[in-house]
Amino acid sequence: MTDLFRYVPGNSVIHRLNPVTRLLVTIAVCVAAFVSGNLYYLAGLLAVDLLIGFIAGIPGKTLTIFKGLLKIALFLFVLQILLVRRGTPVLWIITDEGLLTAAKVVLRLVIVCMPLALILSVTKVSDLTNSLVQVLHVPYQYAFTLSTAIRFIPQFLEEMSMIMEAQTARGVAFDKARGLKKFSMILPLCAPLLISSLRRTDQTAAAAAVRGFSLRTRRSGYKQYPFTLLDLAAALCSALLIAGAILL
């Protein structure tokens, strides 16, 4: 789980894009997926997703994410074809329109989720937040919140598993429980965890304050995020994707 979002260093075209451009491409793919009603075009967008992963130099991870999404997609697909009542029946209660809608919904889901996961794994959080502040003038407070939240996810999971281990040692059988049962066993542990992380948040705020949090401005960042021709090309591709979705 944590491994899925771990940053993969590299020097691919995607790595060299401005983080803001990467976000733009992601959004363009999403918009195109929702605008287009053409099944072939959607399939094409899916291919674009996979292509992004391969260009970024993380084919293995791309396929892992893809397979994971396919499982969810399959479930949704079945649900959809059983639910849609319009159109002419093809087989049992399945209609042609049901099949079509289901295919579109599922494709859209996969298309939208993939680039976000891919881009996050080739972009450092700090680069993303810094460039949002520098280029898009997002207030620093929001960027700070985002990056600290991401900073504390691994720690939160670590503490969670520590508490669970401690409980297991006391005879609580987490491993035997599944589904809702397991959830109801974990839930009571969340309270102490939340309290300890709230206390920590205070400390972290203090740590930021004594290192000049309030002095920071949009121009404080050491790393610069200039736009290059590469970004222009990516922006053009994004525009084409959306234009294609509208026209086809």
Binding site: V125, S147, R151, R200, T201, T204, R211
Partner: peptide
């Protein structure tokens, strides 16, 4: 700080 984990702000 005494509690290192709450002092560190950044992910990297």
């Amino acid at each position: 700080f005494q509690d290192v984990d709450s002092q560190i702000i950044s992910p990297m």
